[in-house]
């Protein structure tokens, strides 16, 4: 990754030198160890602040909405994109929130991002550095070096990723990492939940949703949530009441998930930012699974010209026949 960081800075510097990039969205060192944060580099000199390492994984794509609004008409926006952000960017492109000409995408063939908390569990401290190799990760602490399996230390969402490299980019750092199929077990969680009784499933969601704080972070980071005014904040009609009763939590989570049905790119940003661990991807993936099954979309999370819910076919099945999980 160190090599990639150097390349990235070079790419960004060249982009500023060309003069067409107004802002470059990437990462910089955060206040805490192993927690890089998003940065908006606005001049050539500040390029050296950018970092790219095993910990820099905060989802960036949604920032494009705001930056595109602020940018000069003919200027473009640079952005570092791992595979997941690549899909997020595609989402915004297909939703016509931004235009491809406006973007300068520096793609990264992403081997996965290390979860600092998982790493701390293994090392007894937050590691200083990490290197993701083929099947394992080398963690560097202040006193030792530790080699662990990828499964033990990568972010949950990275372990299920089958899109490590963005599909669109203007420059690519490192090697292209081939697409999955990593996720043969992708819908395991959904299937387990489908298998239990309706009552048990209801209780499961009540418990999950009761923790929900309604901070709206899941919506705010979602590249598929790009409405100027969110229906959840509409006052007339007021779809979502402000009370956090169990009933309203269902309305919130139903609406959030269903409004991105067929448009979710499975980037996992929503679940990652949730401060109380609501398993939001179990909702999103249920919809992805059903979109795949019902409308024969082999990779329902990949954005395309057409939206599953914006079109139809004359011989579509009636998906309401049969139990959950059956097609």
């Amino acid at each position: 990754m160190r090599q990639l960081q150097k390349q990235l800075r070079q790419e960004a510097e060249d982009a500023f030198a060309d003069g067409h990039v107004e802002v470059f969205i990437g990462y910089q060192e955060g206040f805490e160890r192993a927690r890089p944060v998003p940065v908006f580099v606005r001049d050539r000199e500040s390029v050296q602040e950018m970092v790219l390492n095993e910990f820099s994984g905060v989802s960036l794509s949604k920032y494009l909405l705001r930056e595109a609004e602020r940018a000069q008409e003919d200027a473009s926006i640079g952005i570092v994109a791992r595979g997941c952000d690549g899909l997020g960017i595609e989402r915004l492109l297909y939703d016509q929130c931004i235009s491809r000409e406006q973007l300068y995408i520096v793609g990264v063939g992403c081997p996965g991002v290390v979860d600092p908390e998982k790493a701390a569990q293994l090392c007894g401290e937050i590691p200083v550095a990490a290197e993701v190799e083929k099947q394992q990760v080398v963690l560097q602490t202040s006193s030792e070096e530790l080699t662990v399996a990828k499964e033990e230390v990568l972010r949950d969402k990275c372990l299920k990723c089958d899109d490590p490299t963005p599909r669109i980019y203007d420059a690519l750092l490192g090697e292209e990492i081939q697409r999955g199929p990593v996720r043969q077990n992708r819908f395991d969680g959904v299937e387990q939940l489908e298998a239990v009784s309706d009552d048990e499933r209801y209780e499961f969601w009540v418990r999950q949703f009761d923790r929900c704080l309604r901070c709206f972070a899941c919506r705010n980071v979602c590249p598929a949530c790009s409405c100027v005014t969110c229906s959840l904040e509409e006052e007339e009609p007021q779809w979502l009441k402000r009370s956090t009763s169990s009933s309203e939590q269902f309305m919130f989570h139903f609406t959030r998930a269903y409004h991105v049905a067929g448009r979710c790119v499975s980037c996992g940003a929503c679940e990652e930012v949730c401060p109380v661990g609501v398993p939001l991807m179990l909702l999103n993936e249920k919809l992805l699974k059903d979109v795949g099954e019902l409308f024969e979309e082999p990779s329902p999370h990949l954005p395309s010209e057409t939206e599953p819910l914006g079109e139809f076919s004359y011989d579509d099945p009636e998906g309401w026949r049969g139990e959950a999980g059956q097609s």
């Binding site: 998003p38 908006f40 949604k62 704080l213 901070c215 972070a217 705010n220 980071v221």
Partner: peptide, 13 residues
């Protein structure tokens, strides 16, 4: 604030 997502996590926790 450049990176703030305008979510309510900080205040709610």
């Amino acid at each position: 604030a450049g990176r703030c997502r305008s979510c309510g996590i900080c205040g709610y926790v």
